[in-house]
């Protein structure tokens, strides 16, 4: 039985705290894979000063739970944590955290990448970049769609 944690929050998160929480009381995990996404300092040649992240409350949690559920059906996972921030974020701030634990590294690596690939194409979040020249909605990349289709 996989232990799922999905949270949407404005506040920052601590990788160390979540790492300890996901392993707490479990001795069977042989591998932990984590991914943290950050606000980058430029995109398509514009100087980005920050991001506003909008989401669809309710559907976001549902979509992320569905993605984690699919991952747990494909790989042997003990636990999975997904935390995604919303609201105003500054440069270099953390946006998203995925942690997956499994008996073996192969399942943990694959499941973590799968969750991120589907999060990027299925979960209802939208980024608006704040730049020196104004605010711009980020355009979805076809490469992300192509990557998700490889699973």
């Amino acid at each position: 039985m996989t232990k799922f944690t999905v949270r949407i929050q404005e506040a920052d998160f601590s990788l160390e705290h979540e790492y300890q929480a996901v392993l707490a009381g479990k001795a069977e995990a042989g591998a932990v894979v984590s991914f943290v996404g950050l606000v980058r300092d430029f995109n398509d040649g514009r100087n980005v000063t920050g991001l506003k992240l909008e989401h669809y409350p309710g559907m976001t949690e549902k979509a992320l739970n569905d993605i984690v559920q699919q991952a747990s059906e494909r790989w042997q996972l003990q636990a999975a944590t997904v935390i995604h921030r919303v609201g105003q974020l500054s440069l270099a701030e953390q946006i998203v955290l995925v942690i997956v634990t499994s008996a073996h590294r192969g399942d943990a690596f694959d499941a973590c990448e799968f969750i991120m690939d589907f999060l990027k194409t299925q979960a209802p979040f939208w980024k608006k970049e704040t730049t020196d020249n104004g605010e711009f909605w980020v355009v979805a990349k076809s490469a992300d769609q192509d990557k998700a289709k490889t699973w």
């Binding site: 996404g37 992240l53 989401h55 669809y56 559907m59 995604h84 946006i95 998203v96 991120m116 999060l119 990027k120 194409t121 299925q122 979960a123 209802p124 979040f125 939208w126 980024k127 909605w137 980020v138 355009v139 979805a140």
Partner: peptide
């Protein structure tokens, strides 16, 4: 029912 553009989270 919701309408929205392609998503850009992560």
């Amino acid at each position: 029912v919701a309408f929205f553009p392609p998503v850009t989270g992560g």
